[in-house]
Structures are given as C-alpha cells and as structure tokens.
Nucleic acid binder design. Structure first.
Length: 224
DNA sequence: ACATTAAATTCGA
DNA sequence: TCGAATTTAATGT
C-alpha cells in the first residue's frame, strides 16, 4: 500500500482514474528496491505483477542460447512494464536487469485485473502503451539489422524520451553515455562517437551525465 | 587503453 | 560551514 499522493506522483495513468479506483490501485502496490547489477526479473518466471519505475534505470533484454544478448528496451522513472505478460498469464519472455539502484512500484496481478475490468481510463492507457511498444519493437528490428550505429543510438534515445511511455520525462534525462551504450548494445566509445554525431546534427545536446533531446521526432526517424 | 575534465567527497581551518 | 585538496566518475580520442 502506498499513499494516494505518491501514486499520482509516480503514475501518470493514475491521474485519469476515479478517486475510488485510485484507492484500489494504491492498495495493491508495494515499493521494492534492487541494487545496481541485480536481476529484477528472470526470464521464464511467472509474471505475477505489473511494475512501474519510480527511480533508477533498467534494461529489458533476452539472452540467446549461445550467450549473446539482445537488448529490448531501456526503462527509467515514470515507465510501466510487464502488462503483456500479466495479461496473457504467461512467464516473462525477457529478463529485467538493474543498471543502477532502482526503486519500483509493484502492483499485484489481482489489482491489475480489477482495474482492467473496471476502469476505462486504465484500459485506454494500456492500449496506448502496448501500441507504442509494438511500434518501438518493429522499429528496432529494422535498426538492429540494417542501420548505422548512429541511427541505433538515435532510436535508443528516442525510446527513452517517448512521450507515450514517459509523459513526464520532459526533454532531458540523467543518463551516462555508458548506460546508453548498455541499452543500445554498443560499446561506450562507439556510443560516444554516435552521440557526438547526433549533437553535431543538433538532435541532442550532451552534458555531463545527462542528455538533452532537441528533436525527438527526428531522432526516431533517423535512418542514416 | 589512456588522457582530460566534471563532479563529489574529504578535510582543515 | 567554507573552500581547497583529493578522489571518483564520466567523457573524448
């Protein structure tokens, strides 16, 4: 159980809910913390919860049998994930790794389904979110197979700033170049070169431990 | 892998 | 509690 004010602060979707639904939601949420480097959810374990990131940075990834890894998405404060696995009642098909110490809001399955069955705004949020992620993943297949490292980094950044997934993110994010590299699946030097190329094109501005997005649309559309 | 720069922390007044 | 000195973290090549 968390405070209603806390829920409204960390969950954009909660602001659209009826007040009594907000009470339902907060009653089904607990706060959990994980240290940097730890696995928040292992591949194949049951998905009995829906998770919001309150603070920190994580990445969603899958591991190939030969040990190669494919990074699927970065997750930071304000983002919610896992709804697909919870809805389908199937084990998680990916692994969630904490890149920094993270604080999470964990909603139990029962509460999630109650909102799913009783709240229209909640459903609208879920549809938007699922649709947005689908679009991201389709874009990622194209980028990873065809496009330059600069375009891959541009896409990684644009997903982190995606207004549908991070409505309160604004245009700047505290993240190191090394962390962007981890999410993009590239080494830090390569990431650094790509970031400088994007800065030259005036799509982003680099600051110490921070990145400012100047044109999210162009970042997402970049193909060279 | 190394050199440089920014930030965070420690320490002494 | 202020600021200089030192250490740690991030960046650039």
């Amino acid at each position: 159980m968390i405070e209603a004010s806390k829920l409204l602060e960390i969950a954009n979707w909660a602001r659209e809910l009826d007040p009594d639904h907000v009470d339902r939601a907060r009653a089904g949420i607990v706060i959990k913390q994980y240290p940097a480097g730890s696995t928040v959810h292992e591949f194949g374990l049951p998905s009995d919860s829906w998770i919001g990131v309150i603070d920190g940075l994580m990445k969603m990834r899958i591991l190939a049998p030969d040990g190669r890894e494919v990074s699927l998405a970065g997750l930071h404060a304000g983002g919610w994930f896992g709804e697909g696995s919870v809805l389908k009642g199937e084990p998680r098909r990916y692994e969630i790794l904490a890149l920094r110490d993270v604080t999470l809001a964990v909603m139990d399955r029962k509460t999630f389904f109650w909102l799913f069955e009783n709240s229209l705004p909640f459903n609208q949020f879920l549809v938007r979110q699922l649709n947005q992620r689908l679009g991201q993943f389709i874009g990622q297949v194209i980028h990873d197979r065809i496009l330059s490292t600069t375009a891959r980094v541009a896409r990684t950044i644009s997903t982190l700033f995606d207004p549908a997934l991070y409505p309160d993110a604004g245009d700047s994010l505290e993240i190191t170049q090394e962390e962007i590299g981890l999410i993009a699946g590239l080494t830090r030097p390569v990431t650094n070169q790509a970031l400088r190329a994007l800065e030259t094109r005036e799509l982003i501005r680099l600051e110490y431990g921070k990145i400012v997005a100047l044109d999210i649309q162009k970042l997402a559309a970049l193909t060279t």
